[in-house]
């Protein structure tokens, strides 16, 4: 809305454009004219104080620019068994690392469409996370008793809000409902959907309709990310796609969907090593790093690590 124009339309009180301009208060900051707009400078200073959610793997955090970013939609895809759910659980735990220990101290929402969320595994990862955080802060030697109380795996589990979704109708419903839900649960800092594609890859005859529904869903997810300042992480399956005369692996749900996310990370096998590749990101460069899934959760690859292959 440009100054002058809005008032120009308001002719009933006999205000002409000229007088309207004179009536405007002087030295008025320009951005107050643009509803809800922020300057790039303001956004930068906001981003600089914004903390990121660590993946648990330093190398992966580095290529992601510090970890998973709030206010953004990040898609993570890969073949079965590569560790998508593991990363999902790890993020649901890591988002809860309290402020005093350099984390976000937020809650997590986990929407499980595949039934692959393993609560015992979540406990294991939470326990390892608590131990890691406490051992690092023990070096500093000042952990207040109140902070110690928070560092209990059961507290971590209680802050993972879990929805088990069994049909795409329920998936759409729960994402619609989150707008109300998040308005009450202000502490939620991450929303994980594991996986976003499973239910949409079956039971759908009209693919054009599927594309429209998915794009509406992705708009809603983006809106949730922005308005509640939370990270949205979508886990996706892979499919084979025919391009340039041969089949290649590609993330599911088609080309229109690939525009839906701010960031896209593909997990893949490089021989026996798990790797993550940033396919798309507006802020960091395309890069690849290794990661490993250990008993404690997602961690760096240890170079001298002797791989035990169970056959």
């Amino acid at each position: 809305m440009l100054p002058g124009r809005a008032i120009f339309s308001n002719r009933s009180d006999g205000v002409t454009p000229m007088t309207a301009h004179e009536r405007l208060p002087q030295n008025r900051p320009i951005q107050s004219d643009f509803f809800g707009a922020q300057t790039a400078w303001e956004m930068l200073s906001e981003e600089l104080v914004q903390k990121h959610i660590t993946t648990g793997c330093q190398d992966l955090d580095d290529i992601l620019g510090g970890g998973i970013h709030c206010k953004e939609v990040t898609e993570i895809g890969g073949v079965p068994g590569i560790g998508k759910t593991q990363i999902g659980i790890q993020l649901a735990v890591n988002v809860q690392i309290p402020d005093e220990f350099g984390g976000l101290g937020g809650k997590a929402i986990y929407i499980d469409t595949e039934g692959s969320f393993m609560v015992e595994r979540a406990y294991q990862i939470a326990k390892a996370c608590v131990q890691d955080v406490l051992s690092i802060s023990a070096i500093d030697g000042k952990v207040a008793e109140t902070h110690r109380k928070k560092m209990n795996p059961n507290v971590f589990l209680a802050n993972i809000l879990y929805f088990r979704v069994c049909s795409y109708t329920e998936q759409i419903a729960v994402i619609n409902y989150l707008e109300k839900f998040l308005a009450e649960e202000r502490d939620v800092k991450i929303l994980i959907i594991d996986s976003v594609s499973f239910l949409f890859r079956q039971d759908f005859d009209d693919l054009a309709l599927r594309t429209r529904i998915l794009s509406e869903m992705s708009l809603k997810l983006m809106k949730l990310a922005k308005s509640f300042n939370l990270a949205v992480v979508l886990l996706n399956q892979v499919t084979t796609k025919f391009t340039e005369g041969s089949f290649h692996l590609s993330l599911a749900l088609g080309d229109s969907w690939s525009h839906a996310c701010t960031n896209r990370v593909i997990l893949y096998w490089n021989n026996d090593e798990r790797c993550a590749y940033i396919e798309k990101s507006p802020s960091v460069r395309s890069a690849s790093s290794g990661f490993s899934v250990t008993a404690e959760g997602i961690r760096n690859i240890i170079p001298s690590h002797k791989k035990i292959r169970i056959l």
Binding site: A92, Y110, F117, V119, E120, A122, Y123, N154, L157, A158, N159, I160, L161, Y162, F163, R164, V165, C166, T169, E170, I172, A173, V174, I175, N176, Y177, E179, K180, F181
Partner: peptide
Amino acid sequence: AVMQISRVVSPPRQTALQLIEDR
């Protein structure tokens, strides 16, 4: 209307702690 339908259809919210206790 869609919000009301969604609210009714949404599965109940659980926590991971409840899941482990139920088990």
